[in-house]
Amino acid sequence: MKGRPVLGFISGLLFGLFLALALQQFGIMPLTTLSLIGLPIVGIALGLGLAAWAPFGNKT
């Protein structure tokens, strides 16, 4: 991986959890399996995807 997979995993997981809680708190989506489990999984996938892609920073 060209980026930072560990950072991507942890931050993606936490982002998904915070997002699920925020959506619940603001009355957009309750804490169902889809939001509480699904969003952190999507967050992890995005974090790892970003780490693999590494679109930011210098190429050299």
């Binding site: 060209k2 980026g3 930072r4 997979p5 950072l7 991507g8 931050s11 993606g12 936490l14 982002f15 915070f18 997002l19 809680l21 925020a22 708190q25 603001f26 967050g43 995005l46 974090g47 790892l48 970003l50 780490a51 892609w53 590494a54 679109p55 930011f56 920073g57 210098n58 190429k59």
Partner: peptide, 26 residues
């Protein structure tokens, strides 16, 4: 309007920016 809602938004914003950091090329 509870205070937990604001904390979750701040947490989501911070972790989102951190997640973008995972895309920084090593």
């Amino acid at each position: 309007s509870g205070s937990i809602g604001i904390a979750t938004v701040v947490g989501a914003a911070i972790t989102f920016v951190t997640m973008l950091g995972a895309g920084l090329r090593r």
